[in-house]
Design a binder for these strands. Structure first.
Lengths: 140, 140
DNA sequence: CTGAATTAAATTGTGCGCAATCTAATTGCG
DNA sequence: CGCAATTAGATTGCGCACAATTTAATTCAG
């Protein structure tokens, strides 16, 4: 019941983002990647994956699609040819600048009060942190 | 930020269900379908889709997979050959009976207090109801 | 009754999410 | 140095989510 409610909300969010991002033909995950890259222009595929909790199986094709649209640059790092350095192109930065209304539109459309927003954000962050697979880093 | 938190929680939930349901090789959505069918043995594809908010593009292949495993029966309705009547087979009911621990396991693993649970459920239900596309029924 | 709309499912195509596997570069131990 | 482990990323394969199209059955207007 709880799980279904969360599952439903997540899909509504996804549908709303699909609608909001449709003019730019971006998926929600692509949007997340652009946000991450606009905040840190020195991310690698691995670093981005750690931020978003996604692996190369998801990110590699996604990033290649963004690269093929000229929005993202992928270059092998000189010091370690295994590593792929990511960055926004000028076109990517321009497109990202056009998206600055999206978060506000999203907020408006959810119709959440400030109180509800804060509650939900707190619960969600707590939960996802608590449930994070601890296999990942094991910094013991 | 909120959307990302919800997106992350939903994926954690999905990962937890994948783990819990792995012994039966069921996906979360398949599990939802079994729950729905065990509660109402007279569902059609459309009726199930309305319950879960999914369309035939998702449900048709999913139900065929469950049918091929002998868990679900699909029969064209006599009164209207367009309609597919769904139901659990005996094997489906047996398998469903084995799953009765899953919700409790899930609850335990989220580590939510009763208060948090109630809060989150209320917020999620409110949100998904509020955001439900009103194109669907338009019972005006 | 007949042909146009409507309806229920199925199908097709795209992208995400993830497990498993593969490739190539790097590290590290002898 | 030389070769076995490790590491970063890419690839493959499967299932879900969803838009768009298709198929076939039913309904309805004339």
């Amino acid at each position: 019941m709880l799980c279904f409610a969360v599952y439903s909300v997540e899909r509504r969010f996804g549908q709303l983002y699909r609608e909001l991002l449709a003019p730019w033909k971006l998926s929600y995950t692509q949007y997340l990647a652009l946000i991450a890259l606009s905040n840190d222009d020195k991310l690698t595929v691995g670093g981005l994956g750690e931020l978003l909790g996604l692996d190369s199986g998801t990110l590699s094709p996604l990033l290649k699609r963004l690269e093929s649209r000229g929005l993202v640059a992928r270059t092998r790092a000189a010091h370690d040819e295994r590593v792929v350095q990511l960055g926004l192109t000028d076109a990517g930065r321009d497109l990202y600048a056009e998206l600055d209304d999206v978060p506000r539109c999203f907020g408006d459309r959810t119709g959440l009060s400030h109180e509800e927003y804060v509650q939900l954000l707190a619960l969600a962050k707590t939960l996802s942190a608590r449930m994070t697979t601890h296999k990942e880093k094991e910094t013991d």
